[in-house]
């Protein structure tokens, strides 16, 4: 009689590991999706860039000349 390596316990563990993997993948997809939606909702991408801590002359509005 062949030795049966696969026990019922293994398939249950596999199911659980797969479930946890899918949940983590889903969580990453949700956070990524939220980020994309929130950035797009800003409308003007420069608003997003303006949060950068470095001075960006290209995105500052021009002051009226004297």
């Amino acid at each position: 009689m062949a030795i049966k390596v696969e026990h019922e316990l293994h398939s249950r563990r596999r199911g659980r590991n797969l479930g946890v993997g899918l949940l983590l993948g889903g969580f990453i997809a949700i956070v990524f999706g939220l980020t994309v939606v929130k950035v797009i909702q800003l409308g003007d991408a420069r608003k997003f860039e303006a949060f950068d801590h470095v001075a960006r002359p290209a995105i500052t509005t021009e002051e009226p000349s004297q």
């Binding site: 316990l9 249950r12 563990r13 199911g15 659980r16 797969l18 479930g19």
Partner: peptide, 8 residues
């Protein structure tokens, strides 16, 4: 007895 995903 170990729980399956369905039990959680």
């Amino acid at each position: 007895q170990e729980a399956g995903m369905g039990d959680y």
